[in-house]
Design a protein around this nucleic acid. Structure first.
Lengths: 211, 211
DNA sequence: TCTCTTATTGATCATATGATCAATAAGATG
DNA sequence: CATCTTATTGATCATATGATCAATAAGAGA
């Protein structure tokens, strides 16, 4: 009956153990939020003493910041990769909105929202947040600039427009975190909004009714 | 030298004391965030024992939820009042965007963002958040519907469009909380976006360049 | 001035957190 | 098999939180 009881955790390579801790912290963050990342919480889930978790990190704030960066950077790269396959900026921007609004990444949205608040008391996290926002903005800006170059978009301020698109997407996703009902055609409405901002023809970003 | 030292707080009416505690908690929330509302923190600022704060509230979660509702409801009513003075829906919507994006309410934005996260572990707060979101949505929806009625807007889904406008505004404000620089003409870009979504003529919401 | 209601106190309990570090023992190396 | 490096432990300290409640004393009313 003691087959699954392990008194002492198996000894592992520092690299292995560090990776294990990081992976576990990531899971916790996605399931319960960044503030659920505590020494004891992570340690219990790994099956290890709390001191060991502390041993592999300068401090908890750094761990939280690192996990945030890991999660968010992965999302950025994933979506960015999807965009590269599409031929026209119009299609890329449409796919971007569609992908970010499909509700499949609400766990990551929750991480973003929490990070905005926690960054107030965790300077390392705040720095990561700014860095990851910049990375996202760069991805969007590239699409907008390409659209201007291709004559599909009519706007002169690609950087600002990219920021605005991001802000709008984040806000709508954060809203979805709390209230799913009541809002139909999220993607369509947002597409119309972005078309207006970017100076694209009404209905060009997403198929569907234009009203 | 002991002129300002008060051993025991002056005895006050329950109503007075409750109001004092509420007012203090509100200040703390606006300055340091909702999670800075603790029994001891509030008590110290009021100049009273921690037990007294607890005495006037069922529990801290309820206090936090109540403070959130107070702060946010005041903002809604204030802005709503401003709108009522304007004659046309176009002007009202323009003023709404302008007011919400002028950066003078970032403290309230911070409260919103924090509430979205805290609501995950504070059911009373979550309920207040939904209620206040609904209140905001109702205000915006009224404007949109009036615009449709007046023939200024061309959209059929006022409720959803209202939700979207709110989400976009919230997102952009949350973004401003972390990153002020890099984004110029926030208001103008948003105006173009909303024009596109609402089906208003380009440039009709806000004066300024339309690109 | 005395009485009595009750606003107020602050010690106390139960939890939870991050951080630290001497002690332990796993397992590679010889 | 013996040795020795070091991954791992877990007790410990310092803080912080919400909650509770018997004891206290302020101040209104008699």
């Amino acid at each position: 009956m003691s087959s699954t009881i392990q008194k002492r955790a198996a000894r592992k390579t520092p690299a292995e153990r560090a990776a294990e801790i990081t992976e576990t912290a990531k899971e916790i963050a996605l399931e319960q939020g960044l503030s659920a990342i505590t020494l004891r919480n992570v340690a219990a889930r790994v099956g290890v003493a709390s001191g060991l978790v502390a041993h592999y990190q300068p401090n908890v704030d750094a761990l939280v910041a690192g996990i945030f960066a890991t999660i968010v950077a992965a999302e950025t790269e994933e979506v960015s990769g999807l965009l590269d396959r599409l031929p026209t900026p119009l299609e890329r921007l449409g796919m971007l909105l569609e992908t970010l609004m499909d509700g499949s990444r609400l766990d990551v949205t929750a991480i973003w929202v929490e990070a905005w608040t926690l960054g107030r008391r965790n300077e390392a996290l705040a720095a990561c947040v700014r860095e990851q926002m910049d990375a996202w903005q760069a991805v969007v800006q590239r699409v907008v600039e390409a659209g201007i170059g291709a004559g599909e978009f009519d706007t002169f301020d690609a950087p600002s427009v990219a920021w605005q698109i991001l802000g709008m997407v984040d806000g709508l996703n954060a809203q979805a975190l709390v209230r799913w009902d009541g809002v139909s055609d999220r993607g369509t409405h947002l597409a119309r909004a972005v078309e207006g901002m970017v100076g694209a023809a009404r209905g060009s970003l997403l198929p569907g009714q234009a009203g």
